[in-house]
Amino acid sequence: MTDTPKDRLTGFIARHGTIVMFLLIVLVFGTQAPNFLGPDNLANIIKQASFIGIAAIGMVFVLLTAGIDLSVGSVMYLGPLIAGFAMRDFGVGVAGGLLVAVAAGAIMGAINAFLIVYLRIIPFIVTLSTLFFFRGFGAWLTSSRQFDFPDEIRAFGLSSVMGIPTPILFFVAIAAIAHVVLSRTTFGRQVYAIGNDPAAAEKAGISTWRVKAGVYIICSTLAALSGFILIAQIGRLDTGFGEGREFDVIAAAVLGGASLFGGIGTAFSAVIGATMIQAVKTGLVFTGVSLYLQPMLQGLIIFVAVFLDSFRASQLEMLQRRFIRPL
């Protein structure tokens, strides 16, 4: 294969397309609105991205096994809600509430996992059902009324450690842990194996049901945690909280490079994807684009990014094609 500078450039862009795209978007907004690139705003973008980002990290685990979890938006709602009851009625405090939210998320994930792994119902249908069930359960608990958290929770949500906002710390820590789990543990590597070839994974003696159950539990746990961290900044829980967020979460993971067909993606896919979506949202506000045009532009930018990604795949294939005679 001849290696012209053009080929090398194409190859570089093809391999690191998401990052290149990301930097371009940031630069364009930066030239339009110089404040956009200020450290305060960049920190703010990451802070706001942490909500979708933490859930998207969980989603990456599920996507890696070629599964899907549509219930994350409802888990974001029900997890913190149960934690809220525990804090208000049993006085468990913020730390206790956090643990309850995480535990509730884990249980919801276990319900998904049970239906998917044990009853062998496809993930799409299972999580579509639990999407309604979990939210419905919350609506029944609250009679569809707004739920007010004890005041102490906002002190936690708005706190910072050494100048770094707590949500960012959680986001970074979870991304780092997820990265280690995916790349350096038996469980993590088996997640990749199952996504690549489920039949071969079975034959290789991998306990596929355990790994699959694991990813749904992780996904719901992180969704509940992300919900709790955002609620901690607001202090109350509306009945529509988290509604439709499953799509933001899936979009973030895919935008960052996770494949819906399994086997491809990393914890950083979620971080990059979520930050990118948030940067676009914030950038549109900064550049003064009409509020009514913003959703359309968001949709367009997500489409272009994913389109470039598929273009990238075909380019990579072209570059790797073997020629049988000199050109």
Partner: peptide, 20 residues
């Protein structure tokens, strides 16, 4: 073959029991 193309040679060999 029953190999995982997204893993390394070593990972394919140890996939059912990694040394930890």
């Amino acid at each position: 073959l029953n190999l995982f193309t997204n893993l390394t040679i070593a990972e394919n060999i140890f996939v059912d029991g990694f040394p930890t």
